Amino acid sequence: MTWNAWVIPKGTPRLDNAYKLIAFAGSPQAQANLTQYIPYAPGNKEAVALIDPAILLNVPTAPDHMARAQPMNNAFWAEKGDELNQRFTAWLAK
């Protein structure tokens, strides 16, 4: 489990539209609708209740999946990521 974010570039001439886009895209209904096309996890928790139960089985943030989710340990990957990627690549090459 990891995090993501939306940003608005500083100085944008369309600040109001940027806020409107984020409000729309982050709304429960828009995020629930997106799962009909790709099983991305909605960032808005209220969207989960709006997702078709058959689709929810494939969404990473389904309640059953979240019960076993592990948060990303960014400190670990910052320290060990390069080493582990090299080891994995070496293993793949065998």
Rank of each mutant, 00 (worst) to 15 (best):
residue 3 W to Q: 11
residue 5 A to S: 07
residue 5 A to R: 08
residue 5 A to I: 04
residue 7 V to Q: 07
residue 9 P to S: 01
residue 9 P to D: 02
residue 9 P to L: 04
residue 11 G to A: 02
residue 13 P to R: 03
residue 13 P to C: 01
residue 14 R to F: 07
residue 14 R to T: 07
residue 15 L to C: 02
residue 16 D to G: 05
residue 16 D to F: 03
residue 18 A to N: 03
residue 20 K to C: 02
residue 21 L to H: 07
residue 24 F to L: 13
residue 25 A to P: 01
residue 29 Q to I: 05
residue 29 Q to W: 01
residue 29 Q to G: 02
residue 31 Q to S: 07
residue 31 Q to R: 11
residue 31 Q to N: 10
residue 31 Q to D: 08
residue 34 L to G: 01
residue 34 L to T: 03
residue 35 T to Q: 06
residue 37 Y to S: 08
residue 37 Y to N: 05
residue 39 P to H: 07
residue 41 A to D: 03
residue 42 P to G: 14
residue 42 P to N: 12
residue 42 P to T: 13
residue 43 G to K: 11
residue 45 K to Q: 14
residue 46 E to T: 06
residue 46 E to G: 10
residue 47 A to H: 09
residue 48 V to G: 09
residue 49 A to N: 10
residue 52 D to F: 01
residue 53 P to A: 07
residue 55 I to F: 08
residue 55 I to H: 13
residue 56 L to N: 12
residue 58 N to Q: 13
residue 60 P to A: 15
residue 63 P to W: 15
residue 63 P to H: 15
residue 63 P to E: 13
residue 65 H to M: 10
residue 70 Q to N: 14
residue 72 M to P: 01
residue 72 M to C: 09
residue 73 N to Y: 10
residue 75 A to G: 07
residue 78 A to I: 01
residue 78 A to G: 12
residue 79 E to R: 15
residue 79 E to M: 15
residue 79 E to W: 14
residue 81 G to C: 00
residue 82 D to F: 10
residue 83 E to D: 14
residue 84 L to S: 03
residue 85 N to R: 12
residue 86 Q to I: 02
residue 86 Q to D: 07
residue 88 F to M: 09
residue 91 W to Q: 05
residue 92 L to C: 09
